[in-house]
Deep mutational scan, measured.
Amino acid sequence: MGFKLLSKLLVYLTASIMAIASPLAFSVDSSGEYPTVSEIPVGEVRLYQIADGVWSHIATQSFDGAVYPSNGLIVRDGDELLLIDTAWGAKNTAALLAEIEKQIGLPVTRAVSTHFHDDRVGGVDVLRAAGVATYASPSTRRLAEVEGNEIPTHSLEGLSSSGDAVRFGPVELFYPGAAHSTDNLIVYVPSASVLYGGCAIYELSRTSAGNVADADLAEWPTSIERIQQHYPEAQFVIPGHGLPGGLDLLKHTTNVVKAHTNRSVVE
């Protein structure tokens, strides 16, 4: 069995187990497998329904001669939608809004960016022009300005110390501490036991640490421990890039980060 097929099978099995364990909360999309990078042309966006009122959005972007996937989250909030992270750029984010209108038909009224990198804030200006209120932590807003990236308009308070959590509509926002970046936030959907790890969490097929220019490698494993301790009931975990899975993604990420750190020390 090929690795790609095995990865998709694991996603399907995880979703099936969740649907059985929580039949009222989960209505997993039966329309197909989780979209992969090879299936999404740059400039297009796919939506994948995880649970009743919960979707991931998947886009792709060219970077350094390669094409990478990027995940975000959409959560229903009454007759409105909360968006977590842009679709990595203005063109993708405009396509995301169009796809949401086509498939869901509810307005996106608020959006949260989970850290300051372009795959999370690139497209904020498109959201703002569409009347979406954009939010991020003060740290993310400051770092985005320093980096020359787009800056969300509103500040999220109460997320300055490791372990801080605040309720934001249908989700809980959690600051686990520094990891992929010093400002990275985690998003949890309690009604569906869905954990969105953003770039602080890796997919299972990833074996290298990737972009760690703004990471705190020493603190990252401790931050992941905080996530595990705060959300032990999480059933569906979405990484910032690639295929979702279960809580095993947290341990896998820790292993990859520690291996990278150990290699760096040896070198």
Rank of each mutant, 00 (worst) to 15 (best):
M1V: 11
G2V: 13
L5A: 07
L9Q: 05
L13H: 15
L13Y: 02
A19N: 12
I20F: 03
P23Q: 07
L24N: 05
S27V: 06
S30D: 02
G32H: 04
G32A: 09
Y34V: 10
V37C: 09
V45M: 15
Q49S: 12
V54A: 07
W55P: 01
T60I: 03
S62Y: 14
G65R: 09
A66R: 12
A66M: 13
V67G: 07
V67Y: 03
S70F: 03
I74K: 01
I74M: 10
R76A: 12
D85S: 02
T86K: 01
K91H: 15
T93I: 03
A95M: 15
L97A: 03
E101C: 08
L106A: 09
P107R: 14
V112T: 11
V112I: 05
D119M: 00
G122Q: 13
R128I: 09
A133F: 13
A136T: 13
S137G: 07
P138M: 14
R142Q: 12
R142E: 15
L143R: 12
A144R: 12
E145M: 13
V146R: 13
S155V: 14
L156H: 04
L159S: 05
S162W: 10
V166A: 07
R167S: 03
L173A: 15
Y175C: 02
P176F: 01
G177R: 00
A178T: 05
S181A: 07
L185D: 00
V187N: 01
P190R: 06
G197D: 00
C199M: 01
A200W: 00
R206Q: 13
S208V: 07
A209D: 07
A209Y: 05
G210S: 07
V212F: 09
V212E: 10
E219Y: 15
E219V: 06
R226D: 15
I227Y: 01
Q228K: 15
H230M: 11
E233Y: 12
E233F: 12
Q235S: 06
F236R: 09
F236K: 08
V237K: 01
G242L: 01
L243H: 15
P244E: 13
L247Q: 13
L250K: 01
N255T: 04
K258Y: 10
H260Q: 08
T261R: 08
N262S: 12
S264T: 11
S264A: 06
S264C: 11
S264G: 14
